[in-house]
Amino acid sequence: MLARSPQAALQRLFDEVGSVDQVGIEERVAKYGTRSIKKGAKIWGLKTAVSMVDLTTLEGKDTPGKVASLCQKALQPHDAELGVPQVAAVCVYPAMVKHARKALGSDTAVRIASVATAFPSGQAPLKTRLAEVKAAVADGADEIDMVINRGAFLAGEFGEVQDEIAAVVTACGDATLKVILEVSELETYDNIRAASFLAMRVIRPGDFIKTSTGKTSLNATLGNNQVMLEAIRDFYLDTGIPIAMKPAGGIRTAKQALTFLVAVKETLGDAWLNNNRYRFGASSLLNDLVRQLEKEKTGAYQAPYYFSEAAESY
């Protein structure tokens, strides 16, 4: 290592991880959309996508009742006979974790994820954010979705960003961590790639990097998903450490989800085509996935009111 100090090394972060050409990567991901997924491949893709959903409600008006109904949908997204799997997790605010745990019980494969760390802005003292993480884990959260300190990142204080992530890792204990980069605020693909590496270097195998809070204008896109998948691939091939990925926000249709999965298949390969390594942060997506599965089964296009309501936060 050439750098004389860890701080100096971080200053060279961008040189080290390399750049991304915006037009080139957007042309690349446009090709994923031309993949034609039919028949058995479509059913496999739709079911896999269901199993990857972090079914989410993140609203000021969330109540224990709303969370309980969300949990029911997570456990059984549709008629049992359709063979739709359970979703990966429910995702709620920290105050709702205990209600989710109550609704799901302790003997369930559906996990509880919670957006801690002063979500979505992250603008609270570190001490407060860490306390929130610990409280959510104590209430039964299996997974913590944190936000990075975008202000520090854009100010070039990479050390601070990374130290905070490391502190949250510790606070998580056994809980899985998902690091939200909030890509729309990082703005460029170069920043997204650099921030991905910053996080991956201090999180654990199986922890996630995640695109967005869903609370800003632009959320997950095929472009920023691709930048992060490529970062995960390069980091894995370099270190052997598999990092998981979660695009969140803006993925509303089954067709979109399948296109994201094509990106996973062609960038990271088969080992990432499962819900340990890939998730969708979404709410309305689930209904469309189920609807398309029903259509594949019956051959008839389905009216939306055949499917139970889902939370509409994002």
Partner: peptide, 10 residues
């Protein structure tokens, strides 16, 4: 005559 292409992006 030489034609050069370059992407416009950030």
């Amino acid at each position: 005559f030489k034609t050069t292409w370059h992407p416009v992006g950030a």
